[in-house]
Simulated scan of single mutants.
Amino acid sequence: MAVKIRLARRGRKKLAMFDVVVSDARAPRDGKFVEKLGTYNPNTNPATIVLNEKQSIQWVMNGAQPTDTVRAILSLKGILYAKHLQVGVIKGALTQEQADAKFEAWKVEKAKQIEANATKIAQSKAKSKASRLEAETKVSNARAESILAKNKVADEALVASVVEAINATDEEEVEVDEAPVAEAAVEEAPVVEAAVEEAPVAEAAVEEAPAAEEAPAAEAAAEEAPAAEEAAEEAPAAE
C-alpha cells in the first residue's frame, strides 16, 4: 500500500484550514486517513503550522511520500533536515547526540528567522496602516476645507439676500408712507381751488350789499316826495 502525507481540507468557504494526515494514496482527499500529524492554517501571516515532529520524522523515515505542499511544510519545520541527520546517524557519520544538538541549533536559528520575518511583516503592516491613515486624513481635511468654503459662500449669499430683502422692505415702507401725503396733497388741491373760486362770489356779495341798502333809501325818498308836495299845496290854503 502506497502511503502519502497530504492535506485534508476543513473549515468554511474562503477560510479553509488543513490537517496534515497520513493516508492511503487511493483514498479521497478528505476521506479516511491513518494518522493525523498536525494542522496548517494559511489564513495567518506567516502561516501557522503545528506538527508532531517525532511522528512526522518516523513516517518520513518509513518511506511515506509527502505531496509538494506538505514537502514545503516539512522542510520549513525541519523534518527533512532531521531525516538527513538520522540517515547520517544510521551510516555512522555522527552520533545521535550530535544529530540532536544540530537539530536543536537549527530550530533555534529558524525560530529567530521566523520571529524576524514576523516583526518585519508587523512593521510593514503598521507602516502601511499609517500611510493609509495619513492619506485618509489628507482626503478628510480637503473635504472639510471644501465643505467650509461652500458653507462660507452660502452664508455670504444668505447675508446678501437678507440685506437686499431688508433694503427692499425699507423702500416699500418709504413708498407707502409717502403715498398718503401725495393723496392728501391731491385732495387739498380742489379745496384750494374751491376757495379760490368762492372768493369772487364773496366779493360779489360785498358789491351787491350796498346796492341792496341803496334800494330802500330810494324807495323812502320816492314815498317822501308826494308828502312834501302835499305839504306845499296845503301851505297856500292856510294862507
Rank of each mutant, 00 (worst) to 15 (best):
residue 1 M to P: 11
residue 3 V to M: 13
residue 6 R to W: 01
residue 7 L to K: 03
residue 9 R to N: 02
residue 12 R to T: 11
residue 14 K to T: 13
residue 16 A to L: 07
residue 18 F to V: 02
residue 18 F to Y: 15
residue 19 D to T: 15
residue 19 D to M: 08
residue 20 V to Y: 04
residue 21 V to M: 01
residue 22 V to Y: 04
residue 22 V to M: 09
residue 24 D to S: 14
residue 25 A to E: 15
residue 25 A to S: 15
residue 28 P to M: 01
residue 28 P to G: 05
residue 28 P to K: 08
residue 31 G to I: 05
residue 32 K to A: 14
residue 32 K to S: 12
residue 33 F to C: 05
residue 34 V to A: 06
residue 35 E to W: 07
residue 36 K to S: 06
residue 37 L to T: 10
residue 39 T to E: 08
residue 39 T to C: 03
residue 40 Y to W: 13
residue 43 N to F: 02
residue 46 P to G: 02
residue 47 A to Y: 06
residue 48 T to K: 12
residue 50 V to M: 07
residue 52 N to D: 15
residue 54 K to Y: 06
residue 55 Q to I: 04
residue 58 Q to H: 07
residue 59 W to I: 03
residue 60 V to K: 09
residue 62 N to S: 13
residue 63 G to A: 03
residue 64 A to L: 03
residue 64 A to G: 05
residue 66 P to I: 04
residue 71 R to F: 04
residue 73 I to M: 03
residue 75 S to Q: 10
residue 76 L to T: 07
residue 76 L to A: 12
residue 78 G to V: 08
residue 78 G to T: 07
residue 81 Y to M: 09
residue 82 A to L: 02
residue 83 K to T: 08
residue 85 L to V: 02
residue 86 Q to R: 09
residue 86 Q to S: 12
residue 86 Q to A: 09
residue 88 G to R: 11
residue 89 V to H: 01
residue 90 I to F: 09
residue 90 I to C: 01
residue 94 L to I: 10
residue 95 T to I: 05
residue 95 T to C: 02
residue 96 Q to G: 06
residue 100 D to C: 00
residue 103 F to M: 14
residue 106 W to T: 00
residue 106 W to I: 04
residue 106 W to N: 09
residue 107 K to W: 01
residue 107 K to G: 05
residue 107 K to S: 10
residue 109 E to N: 11
residue 111 A to I: 05
residue 113 Q to S: 07
residue 114 I to T: 10
residue 115 E to G: 01
residue 116 A to C: 00
residue 118 A to W: 02
residue 120 K to A: 09
residue 125 K to R: 14
residue 126 A to L: 12
residue 130 A to E: 15
residue 131 S to E: 15
residue 131 S to C: 00
residue 131 S to K: 14
residue 133 L to P: 00
residue 136 E to S: 09
residue 138 K to H: 04
residue 139 V to Q: 12
residue 142 A to Q: 12
residue 142 A to I: 08
residue 145 E to I: 10
residue 146 S to D: 11
residue 146 S to P: 01
residue 148 L to N: 10
residue 150 K to T: 11
residue 154 A to S: 11
residue 155 D to I: 08
residue 155 D to V: 05
residue 155 D to M: 14
residue 158 L to R: 14
residue 158 L to A: 12
residue 162 V to P: 00
residue 164 E to V: 09
residue 169 T to R: 14
residue 172 E to Q: 14
residue 176 V to C: 03
residue 178 E to C: 06
residue 179 A to S: 12
residue 181 V to D: 08
residue 183 E to A: 13
residue 185 A to C: 03
residue 186 V to Y: 10
residue 189 A to L: 13
residue 189 A to M: 08
residue 190 P to A: 04
residue 191 V to W: 06
residue 192 V to L: 13
residue 193 E to I: 14
residue 195 A to N: 15
residue 198 E to Y: 11
residue 199 A to W: 06
residue 201 V to T: 10
residue 202 A to D: 13
residue 203 E to R: 07
residue 203 E to F: 05
residue 205 A to D: 11
residue 206 V to Q: 03
residue 210 P to A: 07
residue 212 A to T: 14
residue 215 A to D: 08
residue 216 P to D: 06
residue 216 P to S: 09
residue 218 A to R: 05
residue 219 E to F: 06
residue 221 A to R: 11
residue 222 A to L: 15
residue 223 E to T: 01
residue 223 E to N: 04
residue 230 E to K: 04
residue 232 A to L: 11
residue 232 A to N: 00
residue 235 A to S: 04
residue 236 P to I: 02
residue 239 E to R: 01
residue 239 E to C: 00
